[in-house]
Write a protein that binds this DNA or RNA. Structure first.
Lengths: 199, 199
DNA sequence: GAAGCTATTGGACGAACGCCCAAGGAGTCA
DNA sequence: TGACTCCTTGGGCGTTCGTCCAATAGCTTC
C-alpha cells in the first residue's frame, strides 16, 4: 500500500500542508503548534521539522498553496461552461459559498494579518492579490468600466471586508449587498464590450 | 506620589488594558502572553490575574475599550466644529490616519477574528458594529441616500477591507479610492438633505 | 501602635511550546 | 546479502506558557 520512496514523503508533506491550512483558520495563525499539526495530519511530531525547516515556513507555504487553490476554484481565469455570467454576480457568488467563520474564509484574513509581521509572506501575498485584482480589472475593462484598476481594488477589498463583517452580521448575503455594490459598476462610461471574445 | 488605595489599582488596571490593546496589534491576539503584557505595563506578572480573572477576559475588555475609543475619536456622533463635512470624506479620512499595519488598525482585524472563536466577544463586537452602522446609515438617510442601511453596511465592510488590503497595496489611499466609493452614494434617489440640521 | 484591607511581589506548578536527534524501518541497487 | 538512501519514530532539550499563592508593603481606621 505504501507508495514509492520518493513519493511517500511528498504525501506526508501534502497532508501537513492541508492540515496547517485548516488549523490556521480554526485556531489562528500564531496558535498552530507542531504537535497538533502532526496529530491532525496523522503523523509523528518529528516529521514536521523533517519536511519543513521551520514552523513559520510551513505556515507560509500552506497558506499560499491553499489560497491559490481557493482562488483558482472560486474565480477561474476564464468563466466556466455556459457562457460568461455577469462579472459582479460571479464575483459575489463566493460570499454565499463561504460563511465568514469557516476555516476557508478565515485563512485569508489570518494570512493578511500574518503578512504584516512576515516580510516574505507579505511579498507573496501582494503578488497573489495583484494577480486577482488585475484579472478582475481586465474583465471590468472589457465591459467598459471606468477606472477598472481602482474599481477592482475596491471590489476585492470590499469582498474581504464583507467576509470579515459577515461573522458579526449574517444579513450580509450576496443578495443583500449585490444591488448596492452594483453601483460601483459604471455602464455609461467607456467603450462597450467587444462582440467577440479575443480568445 | 502614589494615589489613594481604591485608585491605585484602577491605574494599573488601565495600564494593563492599554498595553494589551497595543500588543494585540503587534503580536496577534493569541500571541499576547501574561508576562510580556505585565512587562509592557511595567507591573509584576502576578498582577494580571489579580485584576482580571483570565487572560481572554482581559483581552476582550481591552479590545472593546480601545475600539470604542478609536471609534469615538474617528467618527464622532456629531461632526466636529466647522460644520458638517461630506459624509464620505469624513468616513474615508480614517484611511489616511491609519496605515493598515499599525497596532490601531490591526486591533480591529484581530478582534474580528477572535470574535469567531469567542461567543461573548462576538456579541459585544456585533453590538459595536451595529452602532457604527446605524449612525452612518442615519447620516446617509439624512442626505437622501437610497437603501441607507445596506449602503452603510457595505461602506463599513469596505473600509475594513481596505485596511486589510492596504498593508499589501499602499496605493489604496483615501484620495485613490474615494472617487470610486463615491459611486455607492446615490444623489438622485430620495429626498434632499434638510436645509437646517435638526440640532 | 494594632488591626484590617487592598495592592503588589516574585516565584512555583504542571503543561505545552519549537526544535533537534539517535535509532530503526523500508525500499533500491550492486 | 550488504551498502546506501529516504522516511519515520518517539522522546529529550531548554524555554515559555497560564494560573496560582504565600509573603509583604502601603494605607485606613480604631
Amino acid at each position: 500500500m505504501a507508495a514509492q520512496a520518493p513519493e511517500r514523503g511528498g504525501e506526508v508533506r501534502r497532508r501537513l500542508l492541508e492540515a496547517a491550512a485548516l488549523l490556521i483558520g480554526e485556531r489562528g495563525w500564531t496558535a498552530v503548534s507542531t504537535r497538533v499539526l502532526a496529530e491532525r495530519a496523522g503523523v509523528a511530531p518529528g516529521l514536521v521539522h523533517y519536511h519543513f525547516h521551520s514552523l513559520p515556513a510551513l505556515l507560509r507555504e500552506a497558506a499560499i498553496t491553499a489560497m491559490r487553490g481557493v482562488l483558482a476554484e472560486a474565480a477561474p481565469p476564464r468563466p466556466g461552461p455556459g457562457g460568461a455570467p455577469d462579472v459582479l454576480d460571479a464575483f459575489l457568488s463566493v460570499l454565499d459559498r463561504y460563511s465568514g467563520d469557516d476555516p476557508g474564509s478565515l485563512l485569508f484574513i489570518e494570512a493578511y494579518l500574518a503578512a504584516t509581521r512576515d516580510g516574505e509572506l507579505r511579498a507573496e501575498l501582494a503578488g497573489l492579490l495583484a494577480q486577482v485584482r488585475d484579472a478582475l480589472a481586465a474583465r471590468l475593462a472589457e465591459a467598459g468600466q471606468a477606472e477598472p484598476e481602482t474599481t477592482a481594488s475596491v471590489l476585492a477589498a470590499a469582498l474581504d471586508g464583507l467576509f470579515l463583517h459577515r461573522a458579526l452580521n449574517p444579513e450580509l448575503t450576496a443578495a443583500a449587498v449585490g444591488p448596492v455594490l452594483r453601483r460601483l459598476i459604471t455602464t455609461d462610461g467607456g467603450a462597450e464590450a467587444p462582440e467577440g471574445e479575443p480568445a
